[in-house]
Amino acid sequence: MAETLAAAYTPSRHPTSPLAADDAIVKLEKISKHYDSVYACDDINLSIQRGEFFSLLGPSGCGKTTLLRILAGFEVPDEGRVLIDGVNVTSMPAYLRPVNMMFQSYALFPHMDVEKNIAFGLKQESMTKAQRKDRVREMLAMVQLEKLAGRKPHQLSGGQRQRVALARALAKQPKLLLLDEPLGALDKKLREKTQFELVNLQDRLGITFVIVTHDQEEAMTMSSRIALMHNGRIEQLDAPRRMYEFPSTRYVADFIGLVNLFDGHVISHENDTALIECEQAGTQLQIHHSQPLAADMPVTVALRPEKIRLLDQYSGLPNQARAVIKDIAYLGDVSIYYAELETGKRVKFTLPNVLALAEQPLTWEQTVVLGWNADSCNVLTQ
């Protein structure tokens, strides 16, 4: 899992493309929405830049879908303002907003063929019949469904239905496309393929995409930025790589990928190097950290499994520990090892399966020495 996520972090031309800092197409100002005593969204401030592929990420019940529905106009916030392209649309009905939405269920009309499904929303536009026909033909070509234009939804695969729904959502050329768990119904391989297709399509069209997902790999693969939500608030807003490498809180570190978390307290912090006393690790932890840390301050240290390496021998230096392998998960390209430290704390580390070995390079109950660099960890104070 960790290695799979790490692969998703390879920058594409889309997530790294420059975005103008002052070119926000969406501004959410102090948005709050509650149901009885439960806050689905709690004082959210957020700007989404024009041309971004933006993800609202989080578990069920975190508020991400409510926020998307507020953007779409299906929900009205209890407090705050929604601005789209500089216009206050907080009280504007959904059908008047320059927004379209692609639903998780796709919501295709079963009695209409592909062509008519795509054309349906265009009937309300001031377009001639010929213009609508040209637009539908353009959308069919864009999603590569020209040969299936006459089929009904029940005659299509899940991936094909997903493309029809996407073409219909884009046919009206909205300024903002909202996608609610759009890939949830697809199998793993098709989902991975479609992720890159969506990124390339969005990059070509230049339309701002806002996607809701609970799938961290999906968000990491496609997004220019991610807002990770927790209990109705944004826990961290960042680019995918920074969110993975530099989580701001323990919750973020634990939600994104695999991680080892150690509780400890600060011994000293000098010259951007912190020394952490950590009973769980059975060793002192030496970590590069630029922000000031007070002596005796309680902290959490986050260490990703792929940052851990095997050492030939134990020397007693910081960032070294003996462990016994208790469980192994073979995933083909990578193996995840669950090892027990001398303190009883269990840690995870990964090794790539570079060679086609007949047997595992490590085995159960084998004693190993683990080590990691000072710049491989993160100190979390929240």
Results as ranks from 00 to 15, higher is better:
Gln155Met: 13
Gln155Asn: 10
Leu156Asp: 11
Leu156Arg: 11
Leu156Trp: 10
Gly158Gln: 09
Gly158Lys: 08
Arg161Asp: 06
Gln162Thr: 10
Val164Gly: 09
Ala165Val: 07
Ala169Val: 06
Ala169Leu: 07
Leu170Glu: 03
Gln173Cys: 03
Lys175Phe: 00
Leu177Arg: 06
Leu179Phe: 03
Leu179Glu: 04
Leu183Ala: 00
Gly184Gln: 00
Gly184Pro: 00
Ala185Asp: 01
Leu186Ser: 09
Asp187Glu: 13
Asp187Ala: 01
Lys188Glu: 10
Lys188His: 01
Lys189Asp: 04
Lys189Thr: 08
Arg191Tyr: 01
Arg191Ala: 01
Arg191Gly: 00
Glu192Met: 12
Thr194Ser: 13
Gln195Cys: 14
Phe196Val: 15
Leu198Asn: 09
Leu201Cys: 10
Gln202Cys: 08
Arg204Val: 03
Gly206Tyr: 06
Ile207His: 05
Ile211Pro: 00
Thr213Pro: 01
His214Ala: 04
Gln216Ile: 07
Glu217Arg: 14
Glu218Arg: 08
Glu218Asn: 09
Met220Leu: 15
Met220His: 12
Ser224Thr: 15
Ser224His: 15
Ser224Asn: 15
Ile226Lys: 00
Leu228Trp: 02
Met229Trp: 02
Gln236Tyr: 02
Asp238Phe: 08
Ala239Ser: 14
Ala239Phe: 05
Ala239Gln: 15
Ala239Cys: 13
